[in-house]
Simulated assay, not measured.
Amino acid sequence: MGTKLFGLNDKKNWHDYLNRLNNKDVYYTPEYCEIHERNGDGVAQLYLYEEGSDFVLYPYLLRCLNTLPHLCQVTQKYGNLYDITTPYGYGGPLTNVKEEARLNEILSRFTNSFRDYCKNADIITEFIRFHPLYQNHNLFTCGEKFYIRDTIYVDLTKDYDEIWANYDTKNRNRIRKSKSYDLQIKHRNRNERQDLLRLYNSTMKRTGAKEYYYFSDTYFQDTLELLGDNVELIEVVTEEEKVVMSVIFMLGDEYIHYHLLGSDQEYLRLATNNLVVDYMVQWAKERGFKAMHLGGGYAGNNDSLYRFKKHFNKNGALPFYIGKQIHNETIYKELAASIPEECQGYFPVYRHSNLTQTRPAEKMIKIL
């Protein structure tokens, strides 16, 4: 048995282990993690626990607490302190072990190994957003895990007629009507992102999205360039050549993800969003993908975004879980002691948005 720690300078070995999984997803790749390292969200790492040909791998972002000014008294006392989190989206541990008895054994030893690593590396807390399609919250055997909300997926292994039948009736009607307009769906080159940025930011402003959901032009550029063949930029264009909807889909081995989208409010009545999702369902199915993950809503199972996604599969809800772990209770209590009462209940409490931005100020888009 043994452990290894890979960074972005060791992408080959990182990919070698991912390729030994039955189904490598884009969220686990070093390129996806690199997007967020470049965005200032932390240092991308892959922790590997290995026993012969069996292994557990776990990608995350390592963040330094010493950069948070409100923690300076504690960090000056202890030196460099860290926490870890899943990059924007989904992640958590994965393993190539399938047999149940063997799975329980290796997960137990992985958990002990990773706990020891965190203790020795001065990692105080851990926050995980588990992958709904993998349902890997079941692999989390320590700390706490919580159901947050449902996400929606489309099963692409079914015949398209069956997929279409699982669409909500109003959704099918909107797609039919959208096809009657003079609209074109275009696959764009990775350097044609100007309309995506414009439409995405206007959509976030229109929907009242939190600052966390705003991204810089560099973030979009890095996403399109680093993911390469694992990303599709799709746009809807009117007969006047006006781009009225733009969306990024990310591609894994078997899963395709509806990622970041922007649409022109004046053209929402044309149901361009519905049109594109249906088009990409067919596009992905023709290329052998097994599932399209649409994600969830902003705040639960009742907001407009969740309802829109559910229109594409009435029976496609998947539970989304998060995981929380405190690796050093003593230091965490000291860090939490300096945090105002109104911030308590957030995890980790010292990263509450009232105290510090999720991303460095220079990386943020100004909300107009």
Rank of each mutant, 00 (worst) to 15 (best):
Q325K: 10
R109V: 09
I106Q: 00
D10Y: 10
T86G: 00
R102E: 14
A284L: 06
L46E: 00
D159W: 08
R307K: 15
N274K: 07
N189I: 08
E34D: 07
T330P: 00
G297Y: 12
L197N: 05
Y58T: 07
R63W: 03
Y58H: 15
Y267E: 09
E100F: 12
F320D: 03
S304M: 05
S216D: 00
K205T: 15
Y117Q: 07
G91I: 03
F308C: 05
M245L: 14
I35Y: 03
T203A: 06
G208R: 04
A165F: 14
T86N: 01
N166T: 06
H137W: 14
K333G: 11
Y181E: 09
L71C: 10
S216C: 00
Y267W: 15
Y90D: 00
V74W: 02
E50C: 14
Y306I: 09
A121P: 07
M364R: 13
I35H: 01
Y167H: 08
K324A: 06
V26E: 01
V43Q: 05
L46I: 08
R20M: 15
T85C: 11
D161P: 07
R198C: 01
M364L: 14
Y306M: 15
T358R: 08
E211I: 03
K309Y: 04
R38V: 02
D161L: 14
D155W: 07
D116F: 01
M250K: 09
T111D: 06
L8S: 05
A299I: 09
S108Q: 14
T330D: 11
Y90C: 01
E266F: 08
E341W: 08
W283T: 01
H137N: 14
L68F: 10
E225A: 12
L156K: 02
E34C: 02
D278Q: 03
A101W: 06
Y153W: 12
C33R: 02
Q135V: 06
T223W: 02
I148E: 11
I326Y: 00
R359M: 05
A299T: 13
N19S: 13
Y332R: 05
L251S: 03
C64L: 12
R172Y: 02
N23C: 09
G42T: 07
M292N: 02
P319L: 10
E162N: 11
M364N: 15
E51C: 09
N191G: 04
A337T: 12
N66W: 04
I322Y: 02
N19F: 08
W14D: 01
M292K: 05
D195S: 09
M250E: 09
L227V: 02
Y82P: 04
L261S: 05
R307G: 01
D303P: 01
Y32M: 05
E105R: 12
L197Q: 02
Y321T: 03
